[in-house]
C-alpha cells in the first residue's frame, strides 16, 4: 500500500484482463488463445464518445466494426431529429462488422447514449493481421463469415415467412 507504482501496475493488469474478457465474449474473437487476444488487442483503437455523439452516420462509408467496452450505443435509422431506435447495445456487444469485409455505406446511425468507450477494429488492421499472422487473421475472418452466414440464413428464413404470409393474404383476398 505504501508503494504506489505496485498499485498502478496491479491496476493496469486488471484493466488489461477486463479488456481481454470483453474481447473473449465477442463472437468474432471467441475461442482465441490469450496470446492471440493480446495480438488482437494491439491492433484495436480505443475511442471515447460523449453522450449524444455519433460514432457513425447512415450513408457514410464504413471501415470496420466497434465493440462497446463501456457504456451504451443506440443503433438508429432515419434523418437527424426523426430517428427511430432499432437496437441498444451495451458492454461487450458489437456493431458494424459488415464494413470489415467491404467499404459499403453504413445502413444505420450509431450514437452514444451515455459517455461511452468503444474498441474499433478496422479493415486496414484486419488486412495487416492477415499479412503478418495469417493463421489468426484467417480464423477471425472465418468467424466473421460464420456470423454473416448465420445472419443471412436468419434473413432468408424471415423472408420465407413473409412470402408465405403475403401468399396467404393474397389467397384470402
Amino acid at each position: 500500500m505504501s508503494n504506489p507504482i505496485l498499485w498502478r501496475n496491479l491496476f493496469r493488469q486488471k484493466k488489461a484482463e477486463s479488456l481481454l474478457d470483453v474481447l473473449r465474449n465477442v463472437p468474432i474473437f471467441e475461442d482465441l488463445s490469450r496470446s492471440e487476444l493480446k495480438s488482437i488487442e494491439r491492433i484495436l483503437h480505443r475511442r471515447s464518445y460523449r453522450r449524444g455523439e455519433y460514432i457513425f452516420r447512415e450513408g457514410e462509408t464504413g471501415l470496420g466494426m466497434y465493440i462497446v467496452e463501456e457504456g451504451a450505443v443506440a443503433i438508429t435509422v432515419g434523418e437527424p431529429g426523426h430517428e427511430k431506435e432499432i437496437s441498444l447495445l451495451r458492454n461487450g456487444e458489437f456493431f458494424g462488422e459488415m464494413a470489415l469485409l467491404h467499404e459499403d455505406p453504413r445502413s444505420a446511425n450509431a450514437v452514444a447514449r451515455v459517455d461511452t468507450i468503444v474498441l474499433g477494429f478496422f479493415q486496414p488492421d484486419l488486412l495487416q493481421l492477415l499479412e503478418t499472422n495469417p493463421r489468426l487473421g484467417v480464423s477471425v475472418v472465418m468467424r466473421l463469415a460464420r456470423i454473416i452466414a448465420e445472419r443471412l440464413q436468419h434473413l432468408l428464413h424471415e423472408n420465407k415467412q413473409l412470402q408465405e404470409r403475403i401468399d396467404e393474404l393474397e389467397r384470402n383476398r
Partner: peptide, 9 residues
C-alpha cells in the same frame, strides 16, 4: 472522432 475513420482509411 468525426474524422477518425476517414483519416485511418
Amino acid at each position: 472522432n468525426r474524422f477518425f475513420e476517414m483519416t485511418l482509411s
